[in-house]
Structures are given as C-alpha cells and as structure tokens.
Design a protein around this nucleic acid. Structure first.
Length: 688
DNA sequence: ATTAGGG
DNA sequence: CCCTAAT
C-alpha cells in the first residue's frame, strides 16, 4: 500500500533517501568536486538517461530488484544489469543524433565509466554535498563561470552523501548498523537530471549521464567542441508526466527537452519553483536561512538513514526585509499553505495518486523533485503492510528534511555554496529532529499509545499515515497542549519551520504559553488573554464565543479546535491535491494574522487610554495588554485610531463585531479629552 | 524601542 | 496591519 503524501506547506526540502546503490568512484568524485570547487562546473545537473533505460528495459525484473522489496542482495546483479542497461541507454541516446561526431567518444567514455563503476560495487556513497556530474563537453566540463549565478541553470540539485571512505568504513564495521549492506541498497534514490549540451554547430547534442549525485563521474573522453554552459539544459526525466516505469521517452525527447532556458519554466510543466537560481544566489550576504517548513516524510526503515538530499530553491527572489522573518511560524492559513497558485506541479498529482510502489515511481518522484522541486507532497511513498502476526510493517522510502533557504553572494564560489548547503543540511539533520506521525492529518501526540490504539494498525487507514520530520526543539513543549490557550502556534507546529536550526531562532514560538496566573487585577486592564482574545476576557463571554478572533483561519476546524488547528482539518486527500503553497512565501515574512479586537479588548483599551491618555501606547500595552503578546503598542495605537474613526461614523458604516456604543462614546470622550490636554501642553504648558 | 501618521 | 520617519 502506498501512502499519499501529505501536503505540506513547503514544498522544498532535501530528500533523505535510503542508501543509494550505485557504486561510486572516489576518484571520479574528487575530480568532479574539484572542478566544482573551482567553479568550473555549470551546475548540479545530473543525468540519467541510463536510469531511464534501466527502467524502461525491464520493469518487472529490474525494477523489482532495484526496489528491493525483498531487500535482497541485488548489488552486483543490479550493477551488472545496470551497466548493461546503461550502455544500451547510452547507445540510444547517442544514436539519437546519428551522425554525431561525438557519438563515439562519448559512448566509449560512458562504457568506461560504467566499467569503472562496476568495479567498485560496494562503494556506495559519495562525497558530501557534491556529486554532480556535469560534463559539459565531456571532458571539458567547465562551463563558463557564469553558471549558477547567471541562472543558466534554473535548477540545481544538491545531494548529500557519506563519503566513499566513510561508507567503506561503515560497511566493515561490525557494529555499524548502517553499513552499506546490500540489503540497504534497495533503491536508487538519487535523482537524476539530464543535461544536454548543444554543440556549437548545433548539429547535435549530447547527453551526459551521471550516475547519481553521489557518484559524480568525470568523463574523460574529449568531447567535440561544444558550446558550454549556455546550451546546457536540464532535462527532467519525466516528460510531461511521471512516466510509467517503462516508458521514458528517451530518444525522442532528448532533443526536445533541450528547451530554451527561457522557457524552461514551462518546458516540463515543472518549473523551478524550487531551485536555486541566480537570483536566489545573489543576496549580498552570506547567510543561510533555513526553514523547517513542512516536512515530508517518506519512508523506509529509518535505520537506513542514508542521506542524499536535494535542495531546491525557488527562483523567486525575496527580499527579506523584516528581521523577524521567522518570528511567527504560525501558519496563517492565509499563508498560502493552501494556496496552490501556480506551483502545482502537474506531476505531483500523478505522483500522489500513483499507487505503484515501484522503483520507477519513486524515481519519478525523485526526479520530479529534483527537477521541479515543487512539492513535498510527492516524494515517496510509504508502504505499509499488516501481517498476520499483528505487526505493522512499514517502510519509509525517504524522509524529507525541511526546506532550506540559502543566501549566498553570487560571487561566492561553488565550493562555498556547497559548504553552505552542507552546513545547512548538517544543521538540520543534526539539529535535532524528531519524527512526527500524522494519522489522517492529525498528529499523534501520545507516544504511549500503541499502534493499535492509535489506529495505525488498521490497514484501511494506512493511506493516511504520514511521517514527518520536525524540529525537535519543540518536542518538549508541544506535548503540553493546553487547550485553554489555544495557540496559533500549534497550527504550524506541524510545519513549524526552523526550530532547531542554528541560524534561526530555535524556538520560534512567538506566543508561548504563558501561565501567568494573574489576569485579574487592574480590573479589565490587565488583559491577559494569552493570545486568544477570548479566553480570559473578563467580560463579554458571549461575544467571545461567538466572535472569536476568527480571521483568516479557515473555518474548517470546529470552533473548539479553531485555535488548535487552524490550517489543518483538511482531508489529506485534499491536501495532497493542493499544490503547494505559493512560491516562496515562507521566505517572506508573512503578514501577521489579523486578529480583530474583541469587545473586551476594546474595553480594556479604552480603559487604559482613559487613564493614561493617548501617546503612551507602550504604557497602555504594559498595563492592559501585557499578556497579549500579539498586541503590540503599535497595534493598540492603530486600534485606537480605528476606534476613534468608528465612533465617528454611523453605525451602518461600521463593520465587524459591533462595539458597544457606550464604549465608542467613551472613546470619543477620551480622545477629545486627551487631545485637548495635548493641545494645552503644546500651547501653554501647565503652569501649576 | 517608541511614537505618529500615512497606506 | 504594514511601513516609515522621527524621536
């Protein structure tokens, strides 16, 4: 059974797939890395016509073995076939342009590469954040430095992996649970990207292959003179849809895929929403902003925590004007968590609905991510099986790590970019994440429940079981769900970005539960509504109940849970279909959620102003709204302003929750009084 | 950080 | 509510 991905606010993220399986050549990797570091590589584009070929070749056997549902040792076997297929794949590709003069060399090269690879069957991983293979013109894989920053590439893929060295160590380590055993290698998760280069002559194009991110390969053959970077293009594996296992339109599409950069946004229906583009890289300072937006998780024995990640970034440029970017992670429903505008990747849907638990599908998903980086909802799939022995079995293909945002000067080197990404990833992975479990969209918070009790053991519900990575920093406090203080916090909690990230405030909890037990005195003044207008309001209970701060929060949730789960309450299915939130919403400080003042708040405000006068908003805040963290003195000032206005207009013109006329009268009186005082002060200072 | 005002 | 200028 396959799980549908839960829709997460954020679509970007790293994929942390299971151990990749393709062996890798350390040498090749270094070589590639060096080039990358030297900024000689255009981008992180990988290709895999070969992979496609593999898939195309034999769904049943190849796929299965790769998928390794049975976790068998497919290592060598797979490699062999892989090689075989690759050769063939290559062939096809190269044959595409029959007369290509570069055909031969390339082919040779590929084969060589394959052989090389096959000799190192156990070398699984790769280098950290590197692995890219981009050979521009085969041997001449440099791209005129304008590469990334220039946006010649709309998308980049990052991968994470253990170094080959490390991997080996692990595999030989008896105690290492995560050694590179063949059984772990049940899938090749690395996304593949295909890059095409057009010869200067325009006569033909070559497709480069890359095994996978972890396995950068450097081609040695001398390529025909090819124009560099400019012609390179990404070629998502999927055409316009997630191809069925067997049909990757390789040959035919190869050429077609060589789309013009300018169009690439549409080329494959996927755009780059999440990729690093030149603009994204332009920011002047070298800062890393990481957000844990929505985490998507996918599956597979957690133990196989091999990571290969892909970071994608959207093109959208954002100006982080506000400092407190992450101040409120609260996800206002309006935050676009639901908005799908334009970011819906056509593929996603298919992916989501694809119940085929095959390698191909996964691959497609991965690829889709790598290339489109769109949604988090499409990554992997969870297969759950309930066996007779009352064991719930599930496999997690991969986890998706929350999204990362990186800002780096365009003048930075690729090497530094990689390091930056590495740091960010490391921070995330090592920053303390915990796994969250959502059943039918609801978080399963009680860790003590049995699967049975939680309802996870029921096969029929498996579709709704979702795993996600969450900042663990919150772990402790979260459990403390206090219904009395419904906090907008929770809503996002599931998707809470950042926490746990170094560069960002680890505890973005804007409104922490404030047990402050003294919401009384000062009559109505000390308004302690922990944030929710209504909760403690000394007065007007009815109003409170009836007109809660019901801003943008979709009414989807029951009234009693409104504060708790603003955004949620959507059926997972719906979510999965909903594209992803808008572009880079997360990057921009979201507008604070609107929270209409309740009558009781107005009362408190009026009272405070009567006493303190206008112009002392800070004091008003302290005295009457000290416990309402979401009300700033500016808010109070603004509210007063609107109150005065409201009081002056006819009742018919007023909107929102009606404010008792009595209060409005007081507002006018108070306003008049203090205005007068101010005037007096201005013109003739008080003598006495 | 506050205050005042315009948007 | 946001944004800014001015304190």
């Amino acid at each position: 059974m396959v799980f549908k991905k839960k829709f997460e606010c954020s679509s970007n993220g790293y994929q942390v797939p299971a151990m990749p399986q393709i062996p890798i050549s350390a040498k090749g990797k270094r070589s590639v890395r060096r080039k990358v570091v030297d900024n000689q590589m255009c981008a992180f584009d990988l290709l895999i016509a070969v992979a496609r070929k593999i898939l195309e070749r034999d769904n049943s056997s190849t796929v299965n073995s790769i998928v390794g549902n049975s976790n068998q040792n497919v290592k060598q076997e797979q490699l062999d076939e892989e090689k075989f297929c690759k050769d063939e794949a290559f062939y096809q590709v190269s044959c595409n342009e029959s007369t290509s003069t570069s055909e031969l060399p390339i082919q040779r090269q590929v084969i060589q590469t394959l052989e090389e690879r096959s000799q190192i069957p156990n070398a699984t991983a790769s280098g950290p954040t590197s692995a890219i293979v981009k050979s521009d013109a085969l041997n001449k894989d440099t791209c005129t430095g304008d590469s990334i920053a220039n946006g010649s590439k709309e998308e980049f893929a990052y991968s994470l992996g253990t170094t080959a060295k490390k991997c080996c160590t692990e595999s030989h380590s008896p105690g290492s649970p995560e050694s590179c055993d063949a059984d772990m290698v049940d899938e090749i998760k690395t996304p593949f990207l295909v890059e095409q280069h057009e010869a200067e002559t325009g006569m033909f194009k070559n497709i480069q292959h890359a095994w996978n991110l972890d396995n950068p390969k450097e081609l040695d053959a001398k390529p025909p003179a090819l124009s560099s970077s400019d012609s390179s293009i990404e070629m998502p594996l999927h055409g316009h849809h997630i191809p069925p296992i067997s049909s990757f339109p390789i040959c035919e599409d190869n050429m077609e895929l060589a789309v013009d950069r300018d169009d690439d946004e549409n080329s494959f229906g996927c755009t780059n929403p999440s990729t690093i583009t030149s603009k994204a890289l332009k920011p002047q300072y070298h800062k890393i902003r990481k957000l844990f937006s929505r985490t998507d998780v996918e599956t597979k024995p957690a133990s196989h925590s091999r990571k290969i990640c892909h970071a994608r970034r959207r093109t959208q440029r954002s100006l982080f004007k506000r400092r407190k970017v992450f101040e409120h992670c609260s996800i206002s429903p309006s935050d676009g968590g639901i908005s799908s505008k334009g970011f819906c990747n056509p593929f996603e849907k298919e992916i989501n609905y694809n119940t085929n638990n095959s390698y191909a599908v996964l691959h497609g998903v991965y690829i889709s991510f790598a290339a489109n980086c769109t949604s988090s909802s499409a990554t992997g799939q969870i297969a759950l099986h309930k066996s007779e022995d009352f064991h719930v079995k599930l496999s997690i293909k991969s986890f998706k790590v929350p999204e990362l945002f990186i800002e780096i000067p365009e003048t930075a080197t690729v090497g530094s970019l990689k390091r930056t990404v590495m740091e960010a990833v490391t921070a995330i992975l090592g920053g303390g994440l915990h796994v969250g479990v959502l059943l039918q969209g609801k978080k399963v918070r009680d860790d003590n429940k049995t699967l049975l009790q939680a309802g996870i053991s029921h096969v029929d519900k498996m579709d709704n079981l979702v795993f996600m990575l969450e900042p663990s920093s919150r772990g402790a406090s979260l459990p403390v769900t206090n219904l009395e203080y419904p906090r907008p916090l929770f809503p996002c909690d599931a998707t809470e970005p950042l926490a746990g990230l170094p560069a960002v405030s680890p505890a973005p909890a804007p409104e922490i539960f404030n047990p402050s037990p003294e919401p009384q005195l000062n009559s109505a003044l000390n308004f302690s509504e922990s944030d929710h207008d209504s909760v403690y309001s000394p007065m007007d209970t009815k109003l409170l109940n009836k007109a809660p701060a019901a801003p943008p929060t979709p009414p989807t949730t029951a009234s009693n849970s409104r504060a708790l789960v603003p955004v949620p309450a959507m059926r997972i299915e719906a979510l999965s279909m909903v594209p992803l939130r808008k572009p880079r919403r997360s990057e921009l400080p979201q507008r604070r959620i609107r929270r209409p003042f309740s009558v009781s708040e107005v009362e408190a405000l009026v009272q405070a102003v009567e006493k303190l006068g206008t112009g002392r908003w800070r004091d008003v805040k302290l005295q009457a709204f000290d416990n309402a963290k979401h009300r700033t003195y500016v808010d109070l000032k603004d509210k007063w302003k609107t109150l005065v206005h409201t009081a002056r207009i006819s009742p018919q013109q007023r909107r929102g929750e009606p404010v008792p006329q009595e209060l409005l009268d007081r507002v006018l009186a108070t306003h008049a009084y203090w205005s007068q005082q101010q005037a007096k002060l201005h013109f003739k200072p008080p003598l006495p």
